[in-house]
Design a protein around this nucleic acid. Structure first.
Lengths: 202, 202
DNA sequence: TAATAGTACGACCGATCGTGCTTTTTTGTC
DNA sequence: GACAAAAAAGCACGATCGGTCGTACTATTA
C-alpha cells in the first residue's frame, strides 16, 4: 500500500470513530485533522471536498457493517437460526457503539440525511434497502425450511426487525434504560413467535 | 398580552416550524430572525442565549404535542379504544410532519441530544419518559377493562408502541416508502392482538 | 542523478456562528 | 403630549466553518 493510501486509511479510521460520535454534519475537517495528526490542508488534499470525505466515511462504515454483521450471520444455517444470527450480530453492533458512548452511524445518518438530497443520501438509502432486502430473503428461507408460516410477509418482517433496532438505540442511548437489552430481546421473540406456523397439536 | 410576549410567541411559532425541518442544532438565530422578520439582535434579546431559545422551542413543541396527541386521546373511552386513539393521533402527528417535508422534532432532538448533556437533554428525556408512562397507564386500564391480558407488561407495551412510531418515521422520511402507513398499522394490530386475552372458545 | 509526482504544511479567504454593546424606535402611563 | 421603559435595530467581536494558496519535503521513475 502506497503512502497516500496508508494515511488515507488511517484518516478514515479516525473519521469513522469520530463520525459515530458526532454524525456526518458534526464531523469537521479541522477536528478530524487534529484526531488523525495531520494538518487541515494535508488531510483535505486526500478528499478534495467535504462531500467526498463523507462518502468515503460512509463506505468505510458499510465495510465494517458487512464484515461485523452481515457476513457472520450468513454463516449460520439457513432458516430461523440465520434470522436469529442476524438479530444477535445486528444488536451487538448497536450495543457496542452505545457502550462506547458513540451511536450507530447509520441511525445518526438516517436522521441527518432524511431531508437532504445528494449522493450521500442516495447511497445511504440504497444500502439500507439492500440490507432490509437481505433480511427479507433470510426470512423467506425460513419459510422454505418450514420454520416460518407459509402466509408470511417477509418485507413486513424486515420492517419490524429494524424497528427493534431503532427502539433499542433510542432506549439505550437517550433514555439510558438498562433494560433496553431485555426489551429488545422480548420484542424479537414475539416477532419470531408470530412468524412460526400455528401449533394445532394440543 | 404585552408587545414583548406577542412577538416572543410569534418567534417561537416560526422556531417550531424551522426546528422541525433542521433540528435544534440547525436552528440558527440568523435564519430564525429572517423567518420571523426581526433583526438578529432584536430576536436575541428575547432569549439572551441560544440555550434559552432552544428550551423555549422544546416547550412550545411539548405544548403542541399535548394538545394535538395526548389530550384528544384521553377523551376516548378507557381501555383498548383509548390505546387505539393514542396510536391514531400519535401517528397522525408524525404523518403530518412527514407530509410537510419536515420531521418530528422530538425524534430529531432525540438523535441530536442523546450524547450531550445539559438542561435541554434532561427535559427531553423527562418528557419522553412521561409520555411512555402515560401510554403504559392507558394499557393498564385496558387490562382492568379486560381488553388486554392480565399477565401483561405495560411498560414493554409502551416500548414497542414507540418502536412503531420510530420505524414509521424512518421508513417514510428516509426510505420514502409509500407503504409505511400500512406497515405501521399492521405492526400495531399485531401488538394489540398479542395483548388480548387468549381465546379458548373454539 | 535528474526530473517528476505525491504528500503535507502554514497562512489565509469569505461566510456564518453566538453574543455583547450602543443607539434608535416603539409602546404604555400619567 | 411628555417621558420612562421596553423593544428592536445596528454594529462589531472572536471563533469556527469549508476551502484555496504557494511552498517544501519525499517518493518514485527515467
Amino acid at each position: 500500500m502506497s503512502k497516500g493510501a496508508t494515511t488515507r486509511a488511517l484518516v478514515l479510521d479516525h473519521a469513522f470513530t469520530l463520525a459515530s460520535k458526532v454524525g456526518f454534519e458534526g464531523l469537521t475537517i479541522g477536528n478530524l485533522a487534529k484526531a488523525a495528526g495531520l494538518s487541515k490542508s494535508g488531510l483535505f488534499g486526500h478528499f478534495r471536498s467535504k462531500e467526498n470525505l463523507q462518502v468515503a466515511v460512509l463506505e468505510t462504515a458499510v465495510d465494517r457493517f458487512l464484515e461485523g454483521v452481515m457476513h457472520p450471520a450468513l454463516k449460520a444455517p439457513r432458516g430461523e437460526p440465520r434470522v436469529r444470527a442476524f438479530f444477535e450480530s445486528w444488536l451487538e453492533w448497536a450495543r457496542g457503539h452505545v457502550a462506547n458512548a458513540d451511536g450507530c452511524l447509520f441511525i445518526a445518518a438516517a436522521n441527518e440525511l432524511d431531508d437532504r438530497h445528494g449522493p450521500l443520501r442516495e447511497r445511504l438509502v440504497d444500502y439500507q434497502k439492500e440490507w432490509l432486502a437481505g433480511l427479507a430473503r433470510a426470512a423467506d428461507l425460513a419459510v422454505e425450511e418450514g420454520h416460518f408460516r407459509a402466509d408470511f410477509d417477509s418485507e413486513q418482517f424486515a420492517y419490524e426487525f429494524y424497528s427493534i433496532i431503532l427502539a433499542f438505540h433510542h432506549s439505550s442511548r437517550l433514555l439510558r434504560d438498562e433494560r433496553s437489552d431485555e426489551r429488545a430481546a422480548r420484542q424479537f421473540e414475539r416477532l419470531i413467535a408470530d412468524a412460526r406456523p400455528v401449533d394445532h397439536t394440543h
